[in-house]
Write a protein that binds this DNA or RNA. Structure first.
Lengths: 148, 148
DNA sequence: TGTTTTTAGTGCGATATCGTACTATACAGT
DNA sequence: ACTGTATAGTACGATATCGCACTAAAAACA
């Protein structure tokens, strides 16, 4: 692979890294003090996808180490935003359930983020996003297969 | 903004977050023990873009807090991968220079990453990346303007 | 059924990341 | 030149993230 092509792929991951950084900072500025993107992401996922998932499922959904998810969940639980109950199907496992407080927290965050997303949508309309996401998904799926 | 559109934009940032996570894990698995993406990124940037930049410039390039960059640079300097010299044009500032050891470190990392990138290129050719990057750049630039 | 292997979650220690507050220098306005 | 303001870098403390090692339960298998 020539160095120019190499550079292209690096710029891809670099661009992604910067957007991740910027979006995280921006999102976090809209969250209550002491809360981070990681906290919001989990709550949002529980609503968007499914309630009652296991910690492992959540860790896999974000491709994070189990141990990181354990920590994040413990913070959410300490604040009463989620409940951890034993998994009736597996004695080793648990299920993560949103509390009403957790749902409210997420909805309020969404409301705070809405103006920003609306502004983004003006310059970068949904059709443009639709054109972008499949490519990203393809890359993600490839990288998913690679890690072994 | 209806909830479906909202969901679309969240999935965009979610996908980006997961790719960031996956690429970081993958890249770090190819680095010597104790080194992280952040370390490699700085070295790579110093070669790809320009040697002798100030810490602030570097922080801005990655959109990271100054204080994070200070820490990263101190690690790199401790390992002899960079040198920090006073900025002749500004008494408050410094300039970051790569050492030979730092260049070697970066080049060896690149070599280790090359096979992965080559495999990625098979499934996701440079033309596809070229099609993706401008959209990402546009989003980044928009977010850049937003933070104020 | 007893044994071995795999898997879910966690405790712990090391380091990264980040916000706040501070110092020293540069710059702007007078 | 003098004074007030802005800027570059850092020290420090709090928390996040992560790898490793461990426990307990499940699953595989003899």
């Amino acid at each position: 692979m020539d160095s120019k092509t190499l550079s292209l792929y690096f710029s891809l991951f670099n661009e992604i890294g910067i957007i991740e950084q910027l979006s995280r900072t921006l999102f976090e500025s809209q969250l209550p003090d002491g809360f981070l993107m990681s906290h919001f992401s989990v709550l949002n996922h529980l609503i968007r996808v499914q309630d009652g998932q296991t910690p492992l499922k959540l860790a896999q959904a974000f491709q994070l180490p189990k141990t990181t998810m354990t920590h994040t969940l413990s913070v959410l639980e300490k604040h009463g935003l989620i409940e951890m109950r034993p998994n009736p199907k597996d004695g080793r496992s648990k299920c993560v359930w949103l509390t009403t407080k957790g749902q409210d927290f997420r909805n309020e965050a969404i409301e705070k983020l809405a103006p920003f997303l609306a502004t983004l949508a003006e310059q970068f309309p949904p059709e443009a996003v639709n054109q972008l996401v499949p490519g990203l998904t393809e890359i993600r799926q490839f990288m998913d297969k690679q890690r072994d």
